[in-house]
Design a binder for these strands. Structure first.
Lengths: 247, 247
DNA sequence: CGGGGCCTTGAGGCAATTCAAATTATGTGG
DNA sequence: CCACATAATTTGAATTGCCTCAAGGCCCCG
């Protein structure tokens, strides 16, 4: 048997953040049938009300999930990084409740629901890993509510940047290589602020030496101090919390 | 065989909102071993960092889930009603990331993780129902982020009340019987506002005829109009969206 | 019938918004 | 590779929704 295609390796890395997988599990995932696809910047993968029959895994790039308010306001609800599954929800809920849009040119693997469900039925340890992954995503949604509901603008923005940076590092990126492809509009919509005010806060963070770069690509030179002012503690991400404690 | 205890019937009703269950499924759930318990008003069921080995199902009453910010601010992240499972997360993630606290005297069923996991392994349709339930909860978390991030105070509060009322109705309560046991502090912490401002908004809603009662027990006399000003549409609750579309 | 939690109201302040305009990047076709 | 169009950032000034601080009143429960 030849070595399988490594395209889904980032997905494996994501699953391994939260649960143990043995080699046979990994092989089974890598052998999943999938269709690879590329999308340009600001391209919609799904819209509210869609009825997808495939799950999308983000292999490279960045994707954002959002929902609209009646007055036209957009709330970004999640930002996905390489390795993240984007819409496992539709394995069990038919209709999409959010839109998915790329933040930059990105690559995806589309996996048919049936193929994924078969795998989960066959290999319980993969099913557990996927459950953990979904539940961590859920915990992240809650942290975003806390962020938007109870933290001031500066803290809120810092927290968002910390989380993304932390998740990218957990996925194997080196801190010094991390570049976030966010415009100030995206940060505003993720933090529940206006772009104007985001701008002022970013300049403040910059003058404090906590932030570098601009034009949609930020770097974080002083991770430790940023973390403090961001009220960021990574408990809620459950990285390294494996579920081997269960029988 | 005698008719099983009906204590877990509200849980069955919750699961049936999102997925189909046959009679044998229902029986299997009702026969789960559980410990019944009562708790008074404002009693903690769990705190951040706990390592529970049982899942709690809310049989009657109300429970709230919250997380704290560094400055002492509390963000309520979910409000649970009779039938809701409170912490299925711990089937797959060992440590609690939020606190759970009763809003009034309530009853619970505690089910050992092992017993629940065995049931899920044995009856895939129940596993699917539970997945749907978890994913709907996840969608609700996202709606709360939108609510807090992008809606003004009046809309935000109205939306919160609409959602609770809708979910209670879906669980079988008659609209005219619905009484929400929330203080203005709870509404404030759920909506990301201060109690003072909540008070002013409630009085405004009251003067518009959209709200009745006070002292921690609200009624909604004009559901239709409240729904409009609340920017509430129940798509995100996926009630009645069954997953029989698969295979 | 007394006390503590919860609600109510007012006045002043501030963080974030709105509106508007100038400046700087980005990308594309010639 | 430059010119041009468009998108994104930056800055200022005025406004406002919500907050803070403070005090008084209600009402439930012991």
């Amino acid at each position: 048997v030849s070595a399988p295609d490594q395209s889904l390796a980032p997905f494996v890395r994501r699953l391994r953040l939260h649960a143990d997988l043995v080699d046979r599990d990994v092989e089974a995932i890598l052998r999943l049938p999938f269709v690879k696809a590329k999308r340009g910047k600001y391209s919609y993968l799904a819209r509210e009300g869609d009825l997808p029959n495939k799950c999308a895994i983000l292999l490279s790039g960045f994707v954002e999930r959002h929902r609209m308010a009646a007055d036209g306001g957009r709330q970004i609800l999640a930002i996905y990084v390489a390795g993240d599954p984007l819409n496992l929800d539709h394995l069990f809920l038919p209709t999409a409740d959010d839109a998915l849009e790329t933040l930059k040119a990105s690559e995806f693997a589309f996996i048919r629901h049936k193929d994924l469900l078969d795998l989960l039925a066959e290999r319980p340890s993969i099913a557990r890993a996927m459950m953990s992954s979904l539940l961590v995503d859920s915990s992240i949604f809650r942290e975003w509510t806390l962020n938007v509901g109870r933290r001031d603008a500066r803290t809120r923005i810092a927290h968002l940047l910390c989380e993304l940076s932390f998740r990218l590092e957990a996925q194997g990126y080196k801190p010094e290589d991390i570049v976030l492809p966010l415009t100030q509009y995206h940060i505003a919509d993720a933090a529940g602020l206006t772009p104007v005010h985001v701008n002022r806060m970013l300049r403040q963070l910059q003058s404090e030496g906590l932030l570098e770069g601009k034009g949609g690509s930020f770097k974080l030179p002083d991770w430790t101090r940023l973390r403090e002012i961001a009220d960021f503690s990574p408990h809620y991400l459950h990285a390294g919390n494996h579920n081997s404690h269960l029988q």
